[in-house]
Amino acid sequence: MNLFRLVADLMHLVSIFILLLKMQKTRSVAGRCSRISFKTQALYATVFLTRYTDLFANFQSLYNTTMKVFFIASSLYIVFLMKFKFKATNDPRLDTFKAQYVVGGAAALALIVNYAFTVQEVLWTFSIYLEAVAILPQLFMLTKTGEAEVITTHYLFALGTYRGLYLVNWIYRYWTEYYVDWIVWIAGAVQTGLYCDFFYIYFTKVLKGAKFELP
């Protein structure tokens, strides 16, 4: 474990808490159309379920197991909230990204490019590829609606920063322990790359108090 990865995991936690806070607030100000993509949240739940299949078999540390359990539980809870509890504030007409394409693409690639052709390894590889593109329905929704509530932008900032810091962690680990993992490196670079234009708008507008609006 290194500082970069620890902060990255904490940013990941923060993003989930921001989302839960926003959904709690939306509930209290019911009627405001939620700008959160259900598809992205469902993809994240799939990512965690397919990545942590070794939750009970491979104990690394209390931290590792606790975080895995939290990520699985929170992502399923969010999907539950969006699907059942807050169904009214979801508008499927805005969530039109073809998620089956990214699921199919990640599955196909995981079957071809992986470290071992075993169920667990292919599922893990699938979760890495899927996580890289899971944010697309959410970003697609932002381009459709053209604007986002400030709390949604903070959610995306935390989420984008988490994987960006993992890239720094991988550079550090390559430098200190010659750690090489092409699958996560390339997927992580793609994942962070998808946030670049969002980060640009976030730093130039939202942090200056302006509304998040796409040009």
Partner: peptide, 10 residues
């Protein structure tokens, strides 16, 4: 692909 994943990363 040659290589192995890190078992301790989330």
């Amino acid at each position: 692909l040659a290589g192995a994943r890190s078992k301790d990363e989330l």
